[in-house]
């Protein structure tokens, strides 16, 4: 269920998104500082919402798809802020803030009213570890895809000779975008691996087997292999730049498909069915 914090959180995120997009459209960064601030304010309200629901559940609030999406949105907001500030690339905000707003909006609308009881086998210390790792991994892939979009836009401008004589205030270079994309993919891949391992250990402790080929597990493995391939191609052949950025976006759409699909269409242990 939604708490009273959800509207202020959504509002801040939306304002942040509007400011980032407005700045981008004007080709400047004048409002970006406020946009980052609004993103942070949204994350604070959002944290109250998560905490309130977490107390009710007695664990981290990820009992169904809406809650998982909300948690993903929150981590993306935080990680996005870190990325924007550390890399000084406010252009990323024009993707992160709208994505966070959309995700939380969808989450708030699909959140059903009843209070969710976690089934006994899931009430474990492994739940926050496993879920946080998995969602952090997804967060990295969201950011990597955002960076890749920026990369492709700049690359196509340079290739087609539409480049500007002026790089904007915080305009990142292709090299920097490519490097950040690679790092984000690396982190995401590591989180995803740890999530799978922790999930397997937890499953073994609870049900006595590491792996049961349920839809979520199957798709996670597929995604893990795809991202492994993407990282591998860079390390061996040196695929970087446009090809890497395009593949990052393709893999991200597969990821979104599996996240939505597995949770809504083939709910297993991971889906919304244990509510």
């Amino acid at each position: 269920m939604n708490t009273l914090w959800i509207m202020p959180a959504l509002g801040c995120y939306a304002v942040s998104a509007a400011l980032f997009v407005f700045d981008r459209a004007q080709g400047r960064t004048r409002e970006s500082g406020y946009a980052v601030g609004m993103l942070g304010a949204g994350a604070v309200f959002h944290a109250f919402d998560l905490t309130a629901r977490g107390f009710q559940a007695g664990n981290i609030p990820v009992a169904n798809f809406a809650e998982a999406l909300s948690f993903l949105a929150w981590l993306t907001a935080l990680a996005g802020m870190v990325l924007i500030v550390r890399s000084r690339m406010t252009v990323i905000g024009a993707f992160v803030s709208p994505a966070v707003t959309l995700a939380l909006g969808v989450s708030a609308m699909t959140m059903n009213g009843g209070r969710l009881e976690l089934p006994a086998p899931l009430r474990s210390v492994w739940l926050p570890i496993h879920v946080t790792l998995a969602i952090l991994g997804y967060t990295m892939f969201v950011l990597a895809a955002s960076v890749s979009i920026v990369y492709l836009a700049l690359e196509s401008r340079l290739k087609s000779k539409r480049a500007l004589g002026a790089a904007g205030d915080d305009a990142p270079s292709l090299e920097k975008l490519d490097r950040i994309n690679y790092r984000l993919l690396g982190w995401g891949f590591m989180m995803l691996s740890l999530a799978i391992v922790s999930g397997a250990i937890w499953a073994d402790a609870t049900w006595g087997h590491f792996w049961s080929w349920e839809p979520k597990e199957f798709w996670s493995l597929v995604i893990w292999i795809l991202y492994a391939g993407l990282l591998e191609s860079r390390l061996t052949v040196g695929w970087r730049g446009r090809r890497a950025a395009a593949l990052t976006i393709v893999l991200f759409t597969v990821l979104v498909g599996s996240f939505v699909g597995v949770n809504l269409i083939f709910p297993g242990k991971h889906g919304g069915s244990f509510g």
């Binding site: 080709g27 400047r28 700049l154 340079l158 480049a163 500007l164 004589g165 002026a166 790089a167 904007g168 305009a171 990142p172 270079s173 292709l174 090299e175 920097k176 490097r179």
Partner: peptide
């Protein structure tokens, strides 16, 4: 304003582009 932005000579345009490609 962006009045001071943008390369206004061929060589500075080349340098600016190098900056957009390389970090």
């Amino acid at each position: 304003t962006l009045i001071g932005h943008g390369a206004v000579s061929v060589s500075s345009a080349a340098v600016s582009l190098a900056g957009q490609i390389f970090d």
